[in-house]
Structures are given as C-alpha cells and as structure tokens.
C-alpha cells in the first residue's frame, strides 16, 4: 500500500483512506471491565446512598437505635435508683437497732 507513495509519488486519497481503514479498526475492551463498570453504574444509581429505599432503611435503623438507647438509659436509671434505695434502707436498718439498744439502757 505504501509503495505508491514511496516512489516519490504523492499518496492518492483513496490509498491513504484504505490505509487508515486498515489501521484504525475497532478494538474490544476487556469483557470483565465492561460487566464491572455496568454493575457499578447501575448499583450506584439504583441502590446507592441517596436512593429512596436506602433513606428509609437508614431512618428506620436510626429510630430503632434511638429507642434501644432510651430503653437502656431508663433501665440504668431505674437500677441506679434501686441501688440508692437499697443503700438507704441498709443504712436505716443498721441505725435503728443501735437506737433501740440505747433506749433499753
């Protein structure tokens, strides 16, 4: 194909076009790359962080966590009050016999 041009002649348009058509041919990308990119694009758009369903799931999880935390705090508070009550009762229980002893003397 190049011979016509190499002899000092000007390369004809048709020859140049035929040569370009031989060189510039479609290439095949890696099929794995194509599959992965498609999955990434569709997943990102359809199931990504900003999808409606994802927002519902995030809100529901946050609500459940909040309820659990409030329940835990209430239990801790009740436990704490119970402990204070027990200590108070113990103190009162240990003071009363002494008082009785003093009065009997």
């Amino acid at each position: 194909m190049m011979e016509a041009g190499r002899g000092g002649k000007r390369l004809e348009k048709k020859q140049l076009e035929a040569w370009l058509a031989q060189v510039l041919v479609p290439v095949e990308p890696n099929p794995r790359f194509l599959r992965r990119l498609r999955a990434r694009l569709v997943t990102y758009q359809g199931g990504g962080l900003f999808s409606g369903w994802m927002m519902v799931v995030v809100l529901a999880t946050a609500l459940l966590l909040a309820i659990t935390m409030v329940g835990l705090l209430l239990r801790l508070l009740l436990g704490w009050l119970n402990l204070i009550g027990m200590i108070g009762r113990k103190k009162r229980g240990s003071v009363d016999p002494q008082t009785v002893t003093v009065t009997t003397r």
Partner: peptide, 16 residues
C-alpha cells in the same frame, strides 16, 4: 436505573 444501564450498553464500545 436499568435505563442508564441500557444507554451504557449502547454507547460504551464507541466511547471506549
């Protein structure tokens, strides 16, 4: 989301 997937399949080879 599949609509964009279809657009991708139509044009990816050319763009690549």
């Amino acid at each position: 989301p599949e609509a964009f997937g279809e657009l991708y399949e139509r044009h990816v080879l050319r763009i690549y």
